[in-house]
Design a protein around this nucleic acid. Structure first.
Length: 475
RNA sequence: GUCCCGUUCGUCUAGAGGCCUAGGACACCAGCCUUUCACGUUGGUAACACGGGUUCGAAUCCCGUACGGGACGCCA
């Protein structure tokens, strides 16, 4: 049997990391078993569904590399089929029309709650004769669910979960306005799509019992289920639109790499020994739904960021260059080939130091624009250091810049001649060239910037007394 | 309220009765490396929710308690 899984988000909000992880697990599971992964957009709630949300889901999945094997199916297009199945059930005597009014149901619920019972439909139309139907009332169609025995889910994650059928009431299949309910539509679609494994959030676990009853009533094969725990926010509360649920696209904007986010999401609720850094290929090879934990996990940005730094260091330089360029161009306009060459030259050093693409772009910015000086850097550029740098400039004017080792040696000899330690030369130089007190190694920085630009910056050092004063005033 | 699920360092997890003096990762602290910052590296702080069983032996099995989560809709 070919494994077919699906991700079935409703386009009423964002694609947040909880949804993204569900999609990832479905994807990995199907790939691990050489099967298919499908996408179904559950847009039956027309009032709340938006095209924008659909776009965000599609774009988010695309970015994460979790793409379906077939074009997405929109649930709203399946309306007629949902109705058809409900009527089949009706004709087979496995469903019935219920003429209860909303007021009646509300009262039923209230009384149950008051008497400490679970709020359930009491089945008052289950066995009534259709001739008793009140005139002018449009009926809902309810499933004639078994009342005795129990319904069991052999869940791949949760294990065997059973509930007494007496706990379940007769669910509505078709509303009185003729539209299908979610629970019914999902079953019909999953069946028609040939879904073999339903992997979803464990907030659906208790829905599963009712869904199984529909499969049974139709005589359909019941798929395997795997209910994975929800992801909670950093504060341990459920992720919701109002509460820490950010779109996966925001992670992209913040400079996270899709492979890092996937790696993080994979490890959130799943583990394989001591493995932490896991590629897509390894994930496909190792992923087993049985290894998914049962407790909800919390989002931890620090770990995500760490993983991002790991993947950043492994990333291809040209790809990173494109990402940096896209970000810097927003601030400084199009880059020139000279700029690109500088970034390329320093990239191996820059990527060691960055946690996100945004960090990386920021750290590279001095290569394409004259720096603004941080107070601590400005403080390094007092009169005597400026004189020192002027003497150094004369030496650098005669030094080839192609080779880091040569530059390093030049600096070392210069420092020695001045009776200084290397750092006492390197720090003012770094400050003058980058405007900061931290940067990649000074020889690499010089080499990337080139002789012409280096000398120009040393010559054109702006007066920075003001900054120095400010720093002094602050203590 | 009823039903369902869960509970190992701050966080993510390893752990399928003896391999556990409970391992790894992030974060944190200290040291080393060093031209700054990172990287790297060495070490450290830190957990089996609680109470009863079962067993020669329990983080692992059973029961209860507490706490957390989810579901109970003519929402999805």
């Amino acid at each position: 049997m070919t494994v077919i899984t699906r991700f079935a988000p409703s386009p009423t909000g964002l694609l947040h990391i909880g949804g993204a992880r569900t999609a990832l697990y479905n994807f990995l599971f199907s790939r691990h078993h050489g099967g298919k992964f499908l996408l179904r957009i559950e847009d039956t709630d027309r009032a709340r569904s938006t095209e924008e949300a659909v776009r965000v889901i599609l774009e988010g999945l695309e970015w994460l590399g979790i793409t379906p094997d077939e074009p997405p199916l929109f649930q709203s297009t399946r309306f007629a089929r949902h109705v058809e199945v409900a009527h089949q059930l009706l004709a087979a005597g496995k469903a019935y029309r219920c003429y209860c009014t909303p007021e009646e149901l509300a009262e039923m619920r209230e009384r149950a709650l008051r008497e400490g019972r679970a709020p359930r439909y009491d089945g008052r139309w289950r066995n009534r004769d259709p001739s008793e139907a009140p005139p002018g009332v449009a009926p809902a169609i309810r499933l004639k669910a078994p009342q005795e025995g129990e319904t069991v889910v052999e869940d791949l994650v949760q294990g065997t979960v059973r509930v007494a059928n007496a706990e379940l009431d007769d669910m509505i299949l078709l509303r009185s306005d003729g539209t299908p309910t979610y629970l019914h539509a999902v079953v019909v679609d999953d069946h028609d799509m040939g879904i073999t494994h339903v992997i979803r959030g464990d907030d659906h676990l208790t829905n599963t019992f009712r869904q199984i009853q529909i499969y049974r009533a139709m005589g359909w094969e019941v798929p395997r289920f795997a209910h994975i725990p929800l992801i909670h926010g950093a504060d341990g509360k459920k992720l919701s639109k109002r509460h820490g649920a950010v779109s996966v696209l925001e992670f992209r904007e913040q400079g996270y790499l899709p492979e890092a986010l996937c790696n993080y999401l994979l490890r959130l609720g799943w583990g394989h020994g001591d493995l932490e850094v896991i590629s897509r290929e390894e994930a496909i090879r190792l992923f087993d739904i049985k290894d998914v934990g049962r407790a909800p996990a919390r989002m931890d940005y620090a770990k995500l960021t760490h993983l991002n730094a790991v993947w950043l260091r492994r990333a291809d330089d040209e790809r990173l260059l494109a990402e940096i360029e896209a970000r810097l161009a927003l601030r400084f306009g199009p880059l020139t080939e000279t700029h690109r060459a500088r970034i390329r030259a320093l990239l191996p050093e820059l990527k060691e130091r960055a946690k996100t693409l945004n960090d990386l772009a920021e750290a590279a910015s001095f290569l394409i624009t004259r720096p603004e000086f941080e107070p601590k850097a400005a403080a390094l550029l007092d009169a005597s250091r400026r004189a020192l740098l002027a003497r150094l400039a004369a030496r650098l004017a005669e030094t080839p810049f192609e080779d880091r080792a040569t530059l390093h040696e030049t600096l070392r000899q210069f420092a020695e001649a001045e009776g200084l330690k290397l750092g006492e030369v390197a720090q003012p130089l770094r400050a003058a060239l980058t405007g900061r007190t931290t940067s990649p190694p000074i020889d690499a920085t010089l080499a990337a910037l080139g002789r012409e630009e280096t000398l120009a910056r040393l010559k054109a050092l702006p007066p920075l007394e003001e900054a120095v004063e400010t720093l002094r005033d602050r203590g």
